[in-house]
Amino acid sequence: MSVPVLELRGVEAAYGDAQVLWGVDWRVQPGEVVAVVGPNGAGKSTTLRVVAGLLRPLRGEVWFDGTRIDGLPADAVVERGVALVPEGRRLFAHMTVLENLLLGGYATRARPLRRRTLEEVFHLFPVLGERSGQLAGTLSGGQQQMLAIARALMSRPRLLLLDEPSLGLAPVVVQQVYGVVARIAREGVTVVAVEQNVYPALQHAARGYLMAHGRVVAEGPAETLLRTALVQRSYVGG
């Protein structure tokens, strides 16, 4: 088996005194689309924050492409080729679509190629090209999610982390978002999507993890996991 793009070994993390992750293990192979599902408070978003360098783990290791990245600040993690689309999108609402995209390509690794990446992104999301001069805060929810993903792609990541990409979107827009995710994956970008909503995530992923109470409680092919998640939900109440 090849070197995994992303590997988490026994990651534990806390907010202040409250520990929220207890020994999380993930292994993500190149080109995979992996879904991470579980109820609210399961630690999914926290795990992504650890990977992205927003939260320093208490214990455990995070490996990206054969090098350890835990403890690196977020901007250094971006430079390695990891991009996170955070929950709630966190666009720069007072800045234009174009400015958001240019900022997405701020990393030194991505900046020389920024013009080309911008063309690719506009090709993938034509609506952003049409609205490049508009303030990001005035876009519709679906367009904002597209912009958030596009902004992350501007850093030319090899691993794209999505935190609740379907949150607050109409079902038809969710299908669009995952359609784009599938195209991105076909270009060779590895994708990890965290979702509370098990259906869209596991429908579009090949494999997944089920998390609860800060631990991975099940993993496997998406179809199997979907059944487990449904059974689990009747117990856990997620």
């Binding site: 977020a74 901007d75 666009l91 720069f92 007072h94 800045m95």
Partner: peptide
Amino acid sequence: RATAEDWEAASLMGI
């Protein structure tokens, strides 16, 4: 400007 608006999002841009 990005840092002023949302420093955490800014750090995710590699800033």
